[in-house]
Structures are given as structure tokens and as C-alpha cells.
Design a protein around this nucleic acid. Structure first.
Length: 350
DNA sequence: AAGTCAGGCAACCGCGGATCC
DNA sequence: AGGATCCGCGGTTGCCTGACT
């Protein structure tokens, strides 16, 4: 009845780092015979190892199609998006990155990308800004300036990855919201391409410039995002898997950037095929994107309402902002921005 | 030069679903 | 049918290496 004991129960099997000799034995055995039964493989290959260990070594290191080395911007972008969609499903994420292993992606995420997102003020778990939503309105300086291409040749977008650029842009936007609540347009989507960054604001329902105005809340009224539909902004949740390439609460990466990760393939199709379209509604059911998803009057912003819990979020932004300013590249970014927005600069769009 | 610390990564561990007997 | 085992996955550990003091 049943099977013989698992190899885990074998006594005296070697553990720890693999030697080149062991690698050779495993590689040559699999090259000759293939793999299938990992449990019996070590004995047949002449290895004093657990089958599990052999499988891991082959899958994560010895496989001929393994691609090692730095992750490209495109790969990073893909990982972030897939992680936002799938969570810590490293094997599923790896299946979209040819040559990369789940273990490698997991390690890369934990050591590099998680840190990077945190520095940018993004929660690596929820993929939402570690801030709350403050009132936005008026000047549209950021949106208009970039929309007019005035930043097109500036240093605001350096030779960073598209992801870094987008996250920095988002942080600037968030900071401006705090500095001048009610003065910055709500922006749902940041579209960019590597050469000519372009920002397309999706006007919020409470903006003075709103296209489809909705009733203002009473002064002092705090809006519950999910409970009060009347005050729900007309934000566009258009993250149809990868159709619009929008991270929840984050930014929209251009299709061009995404496609470049896997030329000639449609990421949207792949994800749909493997996860099913039904995944998205439940996802959004629990995690409504926050940037641009809520608009409140000046009176209802966290800055004016201690105790709403929004202050701590604001200080998070300040911390992130300090980190951002510590970044050398930010210097030139800020200069460009301040030059543009100072009274002595050439007339802006506002 | 030696000691300490932190980051990166390969490998192990434990769990759960799939499969076998 | 149900217990035993396999397989794959995600989380965690621990070693190695380079930077810093």
C-alpha cells in the first residue's frame, strides 16, 4: 500500500552547497536520461543527495535555458505588474519571464525591487502609495507642463528605468498635493514613453475643472470612499489585466514599454489565458486603487482634519520625499521643475 | 590589517495539492 | 476510499562577499 518512504527521510544525504563534481554528475545524467522521477534520480546519477535538492539545483541553476545577470527595465516592469496582479506567485511570474526562475525573481524582489518601491513611497504588498488621497484641483501645472512637452528635454526624466521615472513623477505629484492641497489636479494615469514623457490627467469629478461635476460634499464632511457613491469620483479603473497597464493606485505604463519586455507578444493575452478574466473583479473588490480614486474638499483633507488618520500618511510622503531628494538625480529633476514653475520662468500654461 | 556589518543569493524547510497504490 | 508519497511552491535560513570602521 502506498509508496516507499520519501527521500526526505533518507539518512546521511548531503546538504549544503553543490560541488562542481556534483553539478557535472547531475547535468550529464539529465542530459542523457532526462528527468522525471526526482526521488530515484540521485541514486541513478550517483549522487548522495535528496531528490528534492537535485530538482532545485537543476531548476534554479543547471538548466541550460537559465538566463542569469541583471534584470532589464522591461523585466522589472513586468515583475511589478505581475506581482500587483498575482501577489507572491513567483512561479507564475517566472513563467512570464523566459529564462528566469521563481527563486531568482523572488530574491530579486526581496532584495531590490521591494526596497525600490518602498523608497518611492509605494507599498510593495498592496502596490498602492503609502499615502492617502488629498484634495486636488486647480493649477494643473504639473499635468499641463508635462502635457505640453515642456519637460520633454529636461532632466526630470533621466536615464532611469521607466518604472523609476514613473514613480518619481508620482511622488512629485503626491508631494505637490500635500504642499498645495486643492491646487493640484487629480491624476489617474501617467502615460509615458522613454523619449517624450507625457502625462495625461484624468479629471477628477470634484475638480473645479471637472468635466462631469458631481455634488460637493458639505464642509467638514469626510467622504467614505466606498460607502458614499454620490461622492465617488468617476475614476477610471481601466486595469483590464494588462490592457491599460495600470498598477492599482499607481501609474499607467505605456503599452510600448510593456510590449518591449517581450517583443511580438501580448502580455495581456498571456495573463488572461493563465489567470482568467474573472480574477480582476474580485481583486478590485478588495483593493480599490487609491490615487485618483477619492477626492475630498479642502475641508475634508487629512491636513485639516487631525484624527482622520491621514496625517501619518502625509508624514510617510515626507519621509519618501527626503529619500527622493537624497537621490542625486533628483537635483536636476527639481531644478527643472522649479525653473519651470518659478515666476521668472517663461510663461507656463497657467 | 583586522573586525564588524549588511546585502545578495543559493539552498533548505515545510506545507498543500496531486498522484499513486 | 483513503492513506502514503511525490512534486512544486513560497517562506526562511545561513553562507559568502564586499563595504565600512
Amino acid at each position: 500500500m502506498g509508496r516507499s518512504p520519501c527521500c526526505d527521510q533518507d539518512k546521511g544525504v548531503k546538504k549544503g552547497p553543490w560541488t562542481p563534481e556534483e553539478d557535472d554528475k547531475l547535468t550529464s545524467y539529465i542530459n542523457e536520461n532526462g528527468y522525471g522521477n526526482w526521488r530515484s534520480l540521485p541514486k541513478l546519477a550517483g549522487l548522495n543527495r535528496c531528490g528534492k535538492s537535485c530538482r532545485l539545483r537543476w531548476m534554479n541553476y543547471l538548466r541550460p535555458d537559465i538566463r542569469r545577470g541583471e534584470f532589464s527595465d522591461e523585466e522589472e516592469s513586468t515583475i511589478v505588474k505581475l506581482h500587483a496582479l498575482l501577489g507572491n506567485k513567483w512561479s507564475k511570474i517566472a513563467s512570464h519571464l523566459p529564462g528566469r526562475t521563481d527563486n531568482e525573481i523572488k530574491n530579486y524582489w526581496n532584495t531590490h525591487m521591494r526596497k525600490k518601491l518602498l523608497q518611492m513611497g509605494i507599498d510593495p504588498i498592496t502596490h498602492e502609495p503609502r499615502t492617502n488621497n488629498l484634495s486636488l484641483d486647480v493649477s494643473q501645472m504639473l499635468a499641463a507642463a508635462i502635457g505640453n512637452g515642456q519637460f520633454g528635454n529636461s532632466n526630470i526624466f533621466n536615464n532611469n528605468s521607466a518604472l523609476e521615472d514613473l514613480l518619481k513623477l508620482q511622488l512629485i505629484h503626491k508631494m505637490l498635493q500635500i504642499i498645495t492641497p486643492n491646487a493640484i489636479p487629480n491624476i489617474n494615469r501617467f502615460n509615458t514613453n522613454s523619449l517624450n514623457p507625457k502625462l495625461e490627467p484624468v479629471v477628477n469629478s470634484f475638480n473645479t475643472n471637472s468635466v462631469t461635476p458631481k455634488p460637493e460634499p458639505a464642509a467638514g464632511q469626510f467622504i467614505n470612499q466606498t460607502a458614499n457613491e454620490d461622492f465617488m469620483p468617476s475614476f477610471e479603473i481601466v486595469w483590464d489585466c494588462f490592457e491599460d497597464n495600470q498598477l492599482p493606485g499607481l501609474v499607467t505604463v505605456s503599452q510600448e514599454n510593456l510590449n518591449s519586455a517581450k517583443p511580438g507578444t501580448s502580455t495581456t493575452t498571456e495573463v488572461d489565458d493563465q489567470t482568467g478574466a474573472g480574477m480582476m473583479p474580485s481583486y478590485y473588490g478588495d483593493q480599490i486603487p487609491s490615487i485618483g480614486s477619492v477626492s475630498v474638499s479642502p475641508e475634508t483633507s487629512g491636513l485639516n482634519h487631525p484624527g482622520t488618520g491621514q496625517h501619518s500618511s502625509g508624514s510617510d510622503v515626507l519621509e519618501d520625499w527626503e529619500k527622493f531628494l537624497d537621490d542625486e538625480a533628483s537635483d536636476s529633476c527639481w531644478k527643472s521643475f522649479l525653473d519651470l514653475t518659478s515666476p521668472t520662468s517663461s510663461p507656463g500654461p497657467w
